[in-house]
Structures are given as structure tokens and as C-alpha cells.
Design a protein around this nucleic acid. Structure first.
Lengths: 233, 233
DNA sequence: TGTACATCAGTGAACGCGCGTTCACTGATGTAC
DNA sequence: TGTACATCAGTGAACGCGCGTTCACTGATGTAC
């Protein structure tokens, strides 16, 4: 039952980042390591992490499976390296941008920053929605805990408290629940890009770009949550 | 490269549904077959289809892996049986209910039927959101084509044309795109139940039930898409 | 300046385990005669 | 009514393949002396 120890503790280093002593420090030629990370990320996003085979990652990167062991030790450490060197660097700037925009009291600006920040992140890193849907949204996803801790919790609680404050000032329809309003915001922002391959095939989506979707979402949301005008029925 | 033929064509029948001749027709005792289908469905939803191992399904159902071959031939035919006997029977009633409600011209009633129909389906079959997210939403999902053809395409095109007609009558905000409005409706309906394990952990969700979420969603949507009142700015 | 050597950046082949699948078999049950 | 037999509903053990992992090795490159 005991899993085989992935590294016999005494042969080669798990990751060849030892203090530079003598050998050949190259200084150039990035080598195969980054290509292995990119190939792993692409497979993770398109097939799911649990269904991805290391041999496929190696083949995609033009390397041998033995190289994965050379650089990362085993599959678990490969995943950790992908998180650390690919996923978190893509997610963090968005977290910071939204947090900055939500610092003030302007709820409309905070919502716009959220929608646009998400849209920019996805444009820069198109693998985000697929990976997010499979490995964060799904119960038992391999990235749930790390991404929740690193970005989900701070953003969600910040936005929900902004909605509650705006509602207390009378700027948000009193019939809405601020917690569910945050959920609706996330739904309208995360779902469409994740479902893009689907709805482009279901609807006639010609002529609809990222900007159109953002504008539509903001129009719908801001009419939806705004408090009723005093003269209305 | 040629896959091994899963059935040597001449031994036992792939599914023991032969014409009753002599033997022991029992007439009672459902046996392990339905339990295998249920166990497979549960694993598919919680781990994804590609990552599910047949041995785990057998163990969950209290049977041997050989039994899966006895009833279904191989993993591909097991999946087909799960689709035919579990998934489609759960999905079809919702498709028909929404189609019936969208027959008339009342866009508000059609939207409410969509939201409530989805909510009822999920309450009856809690595995729907997880399976849907992994295997329909994701590109290359194992259920994409069958569920799109059987329920997605008819419902989505029907609702989008209803939105377009209502907008032509002046009932829907002219700044919104009716195709994206349908996408927003799907987002607000599918995403929250799929993300429920997540947001119950992120937000303080005490006291929020299915009815509260439906009411909130309808409130937000119907304020969001309604045409501006004439006297408003 | 030459050269011995340490390290880098990998490769090809093999190993052992777990998986899907197969095979030969079994006790229970109902039916034909 | 007895009994021979066909079928049902499975089981236990094994098989072969593909996977993650390991091992021994290699040519290239830079450094110390």
C-alpha cells in the first residue's frame, strides 16, 4: 500500500537549482523545462489534471518521459511547479487590480473593474476558464484549495462587503441579497468565457467580441442591481 | 494500434436481454446492474469520466470488475448505458417543461420557467451540475455532443428567439443583445448550483435556500433586461 | 596554453504496478417432459 | 411428481498493456590548475 518513494534520496537532485559551483552555467538556451511546464498546463486545461498522462506531456514538449523525472521528480511536483510558475503569476495581477478598484466606495466602478479585470486576464491567458471550471469549480478539484486561498476568498469577501455597504446607502435594490449579488457577478463573469466553445456553436455569435460581452454584462448587471427609481411602480 | 475487440463474438451476450426462452426469468430482485449504473454516474460526476476507473465503480457497487464486462461489455458501452438510462431521463423533462413555457409570448413567464425548471431538475438530480460542468461545458467533454443535440440546441434557440421578439415589441432594453441575454440567463441559472460547494465555503451562506436563490436571480434578471421606463433618465 | 575533470542537459531501455479485460467456473432457479 | 437440463447472475484468478518511474549512460560545455 505504501507508495514507492519517488526519489531514493542520494542520487540526482530533484530540481537542478543547486548553488553554482564549477560546471557549465550556460547562461543562455532556456532548454526544455519551460516547455514541459507549458505542455503540462495545456494538457491540464484541456483534459483535466487527473486524466493527463505524463507521457503525453513529454511528447507534446518534444522530450522523453524520463526528463519529467529529471526536472520535477514526479507528477505531484510537476503540478506544484505549474501552479507556482504558471498559474499563480497569471492570477495574482487580477486579484490585485480588483482589490485596488474595490478600495473606494464607488460600487459601479468596482463592478466594472471586476468584469474588465477578468476579461483581460482571460484574453492574456486563454487557458484560465477551462482550468478553472475543471479544477476549481468542481468539488474535489486539484486546484480548489490553493486558488481559493490565494485569490478567491479575499476578492469575494471584499466585493460582498462593498455590495452590502452600497445597499445600506440605498444604492442597491433592497430586494437583492448582497451575498447572492456577488455570486451573480461571478456567474456572469466566469461562465460566458468558460462556455465560449459551446455557445459559439449554439448561438450565431458572429460579430460578438470580448468588448461586446463586457458591455452587455455591465448593462444587465447595473440595471439589475440598481435601486428602483423613486417615481417608478 | 488496433484496440482489442471487447467481445469475442460468440461467447456470452453483451447485455443479457435475450428473448426469454426457458431458464430462470426471476421476475424480481433487480440485481447489481442498476447499482453499477448509479455507482458509475456518481464517479463520473465527482471525478470526471476520463479519470474514473472501472474497478472503483465495481467496488462502489459491491461487485467485481468482471461484472462490468458481463453487463456492459466495456467502459465505452457502460458510459452509453449511463447516458441512456440515467442522464437523458433526468434531462428530458426539463427540456419539455421549458419548451412548453416558452411557447407563448410572455417573456417573463418563459424566464421564470427556465429558472425554476433548472432548479427543480437539480434538486431531483444533484449530480447534474458537477457532471454538466466537467463533461458538457469543458471543450472535449465526453457528453458535449449528446447533451447539446438532445436538449441544449432546442432550448437555447427557442429562448433566444423569444428574447428577440420581446425586444422587438419594446419589452426588453434595446441596449442588450438577445443572444447574450440568453447566455446571461444560462450563466445565472447553471453557475450558482455548480459552484455551490465553493460559495457556501466562501460566503456566509446560512439561511440561503434554493427558493432564495431563484427569487434573487429572477429579481436581478427581470430588472436587468426590462426596457427603461419612459420617464427615467 | 593544454588538459583533466565536474557538471549540465538530457536519452534509451527496462521495471513493476495497476488497469481493463478475459476465461473458466459455480450455485441457484425455473421449465419441459 | 421427479428429474434432467438450460439459463441466470454472478465470482476468482489470470493476462497483457500502458503507465509512472528508475537506471545507467552520453556528448557538450565550462572551470581550475
Amino acid at each position: 500500500m505504501m507508495p514507492r518513494t519517488p526519489r531514493p534520496a542520494g542520487s540526482k537532485p530533484a530540481a537542478p537549482r543547486a548553488p553554482r559551483t564549477r560546471g557549465r552555467p550556460t547562461g543562455e538556451a532556456p532548454g526544455l523545462r519551460p516547455r514541459l511546464l507549458d505542455a503540462a498546463l495545456a494538457r491540464y486545461a484541456s483534459q483535466g489534471i487527473a486524466a493527463t498522462r505524463l507521457r503525453d506531456i513529454a511528447r507534446d514538449a518534444g522530450a522523453t518521459p524520463a526528463l519529467l523525472h529529471y526536472y520535477f521528480g514526479d507528477g505531484k511536483h510537476l503540478l506544484e511547479a505549474v501552479i507556482e510558475e504558471r498559474i499563480l503569476p497569471a492570477i495574482m495581477p487580477m486579484r490585485d487590480a480588483v482589490a485596488a478598484a474595490a478600495a473606494g466606495d464607488d460600487i459601479t466602478a468596482a463592478v466594472a473593474a471586476f468584469v474588465n479585470g477578468m476579461s483581460d486576464t482571460i484574453e492574456k491567458h486563454p487557458w484560465v476558464p477551462a482550468l478553472w471550471v475543471r479544477e476549481v469549480l468542481s468539488e474535489g478539484g486539484a486546484l480548489t484549495s490553493v486558488l481559493i486561498d490565494e485569490s478567491g476568498r479575499p476578492i469575494v469577501s471584499l466585493m460582498a462587503s462593498r455590495f452590502a455597504a452600497a445597499q445600506a446607502r440605498g444604492e442597491v435594490n433592497a430586494a437583492l441579497d448582497p451575498r447572492l449579488l456577488e455570486l451573480s457577478l461571478v456567474s456572469l463573469t466566469f461562465f460566458p468565457p468558460a462556455a465560449a466553445p459551446l455557445w459559439r456553436q449554439l448561438l450565431d455569435a458572429r460579430g460578438l467580441g470580448k468588448e461586446d460581452v463586457c458591455r452587455h454584462t455591465l448593462e444587465l448587471l447595473q440595471h439589475g442591481f440598481r435601486a428602483e427609481p423613486r417615481n417608478g411602480g
